[in-house]
Design a protein around this nucleic acid. Sequence first.
DNA 1: TACAGTAACGGTACTCAGTTCCACCGCGAA
DNA 2: TTCGCGGTGGAACTGAGTACCGTTACTGTA
Lengths: 225, 225
Amino acid sequence: MALTARDRLIDAAFELFDERGYDQTTVDEIAARAGAGRTTFFRLFRAKEDVIFPPHEALLEAAAARLSTATAETAGVALTEATAIVLEYYLTEGRRARIRYRLTNAVPALRDREVASMRQYQRLFREFALRWLPDTPAARLHAELLGNAAVTAHNHVLRRWLRGETEAVRAEFADAMAEVLRLHAAGLGPAPAPSTPSPDAASVLVLRTRKDLDRLLPQLERLLE
Amino acid sequence: MALTARDRLIDAAFELFDERGYDQTTVDEIAARAGAGRTTFFRLFRAKEDVIFPPHEALLEAAAARLSTATAETAGVALTEATAIVLEYYLTEGRRARIRYRLTNAVPALRDREVASMRQYQRLFREFALRWLPDTPAARLHAELLGNAAVTAHNHVLRRWLRGETEAVRAEFADAMAEVLRLHAAGLGPAPAPSTPSPDAASVLVLRTRKDLDRLLPQLERLLE
DNA sequence: TACAGTAACGGTACTCAGTTCCACCGCGAA
DNA sequence: TTCGCGGTGGAACTGAGTACCGTTACTGTA
């Protein structure tokens, strides 16, 4: 099966933006290289900028679906994993994520769009946090802070990876989210301090191979003594 | 002294946007009502959107100036007051702040611009927080979280005021910033919360006791094989 | 096979934001 | 007066985004 027009347009856009830069590329040129018409481009993408951004609608839906299964006890894990869905998408993008990162740093319009799209996730997470909180002004502030903190942790770790500062993205993200949840522990759900970690907590470990475990075990035993 | 062309353009823009809406108003119409030319508009404002937004450059400078006087002991107060400078500007705007709030809620392009401009403050506050923190990955995350939290607290309270949900903006903002600083106390300045464990690997693995490790180890080994 | 309905496609022309170039005006200095 | 010179506005241009419309390709139906 041949690539869809949508895929061809995305390919063409990344190629051209990478070669000449964003402002130096017109929508006509993208459409031409993709063998499509201008009209088709704007039917498939609301604006020129949209062609290089992740499918945030789909990611938002996936994240919302993950959140919908949470209980008060697993809220922290759910938030972590919902955020991880977005992170995983970026990780699968490889080369494109790097091109986009360079472009968003260079072109103000793209950076603005990127920043603005984060707002959607913040809202989703805020509404999620509000489920477990009383309807008070203080709680609404807490919910907003937590939602923004989750997105901040995500972006922070993602940017480190995009800059080549780390390979252990998933581990760092788990660390960052754990820290976020610890900071906001007072405001969300039952405090994680008590000695019964939920069974889902294992998913936060981000150990991928047996070697990871061997490496971490000595540290763990020392810390837990 | 007559109003400057800049002031007349701002007045005209608020009037027209308020009367007809943002998309239904062209730059030519704004310039015409202000008795100026199109060229003058674009010399004074980089884009159509900019004409209704606060002078963020000046506010950023003022905030930075306030921050520059801080010591490690007064960092929290400095951050609060620097953020308050921005809040105070909005409070002096009165009617215009309300018009802008309605417009930014209705017009995606304006909301995006508004969100993007917040990023400047986040960066300023992050750099400020980094002054008092060691140069470690964990500290950089803390700095970013704190910077974003300060902006979040500001926006949260400001929006409540814009929606008419409160008159006690300054008091609520002080409360919110106090809460933010309390949450991030572990990461900034002298910690008022004594017994908080430092963020280590231990906080990620929700293991709290040696017994937890013994219990989970068999499962882990099985999973990782 | 022919035909009708429908959905996607692509071309054309339009509006308007933003840029560039240039001519003009007022004003102070030599 | 004449020479700059900063501020101004007009005119033309590029390109994003929209509206309209004719054409093509793919369905199901007779």
